[in-house]
Design a protein around this nucleic acid. Sequence first.
RNA 1: GCGCCCGUAGCUCAACGGAUAGGGCAUGUGCUUCCGGAGCACAGGGUUGGGGGUUCGAAUCCCUCCGGGCGUGCCA
Length: 571
Amino acid sequence: MSNLIDSAKQQLISLVEDAMRSAVAANELPQAETPAPAAEIPKDPSMGDFATGYAMACARALKMQPRKIAEILCAHIQNAISTASAAVIYFCGVDVAGAGYLNFRLSDAWYQNVLRDIETESDRYGYIDEGNGRRVMVEFVSANPTGTMTIGNARGGVLGDTLAAVLERAGFDVWREFYVNDAGNQVNLFGKSMRVRYIQLLRGEDAIEMPEGSYMGEDIKALAAEYRELYGESDDALSEDELVEKMIAFGLDRNIDRMRRDLERYRIKYDRWFRETELHESGYVDDTMRLLTERGHTYEKDGALWFRATDFGCEKDEVMRKSSGYYTYYAVDIAYHRDKFEKRGFDRVIDVLGADHHGHTLRFKSAMSAIGIDPDRLEFALMQLVHLLRGGEAVRMSKRTGRAITLADLLDEVPVDAARFFFNLQKPDTHLEFDMDLAIRSDSESPVYYVQYAHARICSLALMLESESVTVPAAGDVNISALDSPLERELIKALAQYPEEIRQAARQLDPSRINRYLVDLATRFHRFYTANRIKGSDPDVMRARLKLADSVRSVLCCGLTLLGISAPPKM
RNA sequence: GCGCCCGUAGCUCAACGGAUAGGGCAUGUGCUUCCGGAGCACAGGGUUGGGGGUUCGAAUCCCUCCGGGCGUGCCA
């Protein structure tokens, strides 16, 4: 449960605040309303491990030169540092730089604590208690069961799954859910399309035409063929409605089963596959519409039931129940989200959606307000769509044409480790270009191998030293001053950054931070490892460096595990 | 038309409002009697789409224009 980056920042802020009070008390600085100090990490470590531009921020309020303010504060902080107990103070020095920056140097105690935390927390390192056990549901993929999953679902799957993993480590009680749209127009069309293909199989292509708007994909033909194999040819005698209904049940079961298998292959497992039909059958949609009406948020027009969405800032009102008597997807989704919050008691709900659904966000929040649920409890992780390239050309994705590259195709060609890493390398709100050809030959090029290689390298080093009776020492036995080069200090700081990355990833709903962090950590390790011999060094130095390397191994393993990627000891 | 997202090196992406805007790929030059060369070091590459504004300080916030993506259904 440690976060030494954050602890150091807090301590820095306290030191600055105390110094401010002391300086005012000593009449060195005037009493004034000043902004709260903020700690930052300079890009260039030669400017300190931590810094604050507080003196600059105060210049206007104090009507003094920032540099002068900084010098006064600096003297008080130096005094505080020198009189504090070495065991609890994270800084060993502070100085004034530039226009008025206060630059802080970390103490040996801080560095030693980093290694100690990684050792004691082991595979739980990076777990923080930001969530305090609050229950959060992450709903993701939720692909339409009338078709196959696409490359876009490959990105959404990794985003949702790793976001859930990040939230777990941030201290939330996390639930993964897949919403199955197994009712409505699309499903009906799906059944009708299958029926026509089935009849064509029995009586020939010319016997019956695919109606306008049908699902034209090969997958529908394949399902019809499977159906024929299972049930024979006698179902030709059923009425159209009977046959369609039977085919829907059959087709959905097949497709959902396939999705489940493909996702498991992709290392994604859900706590629940929630069926839309359940909301209809239990009467919960009716009940939710009744609630909406009771609260005065609906009206009838042209034979349809409308939701007064404009009362909540939407552009226009929305149909809840069509004049045909059927509910719209939107009405059902309102009931579904009410179920998440009211029936099942989740504190937060995060929906992972493709950016083409961004128009939903305000509508959903409005509906939550309308039924008395705080809309801030519902959040959206929007993900830009994937542009798939093959042979240098864009591949269009369409369920209807069946020309799309599916998730299953992807997994046939690209190793799961690489796919999971690649799709989560960029922030969700950037368009992602996925070059199939590049991914396939990515064995040695993908950044995932770079990270795994660092891990494997350390494992084999430890193994080799062990054969010479050199084992990894305990953190308390490490002479931290033996790790005094900039590369080593930077590497330890990078290790300390991991819990902070989890926190930021959880706050920003951006798990791709972890991927970039791991690449950065691996880079720092490779640099350190190239520059510093371990085997054959002075025993004190060797043991300290070995401990450092082993700490890197441990954190790389934590991060890769979080991402659902293997951390092999050999490659 | 209106709304949301994006525009950073040849390509692809980073950068709590902070100091000289960084990494990867690609290009060029080097590094192995020694712990894994799937690695490392160095180099070239930029008016952060244009123009205003806010302030000690802007890739970041505000306005405006340009360019791209996506929405804007009694589809889901």
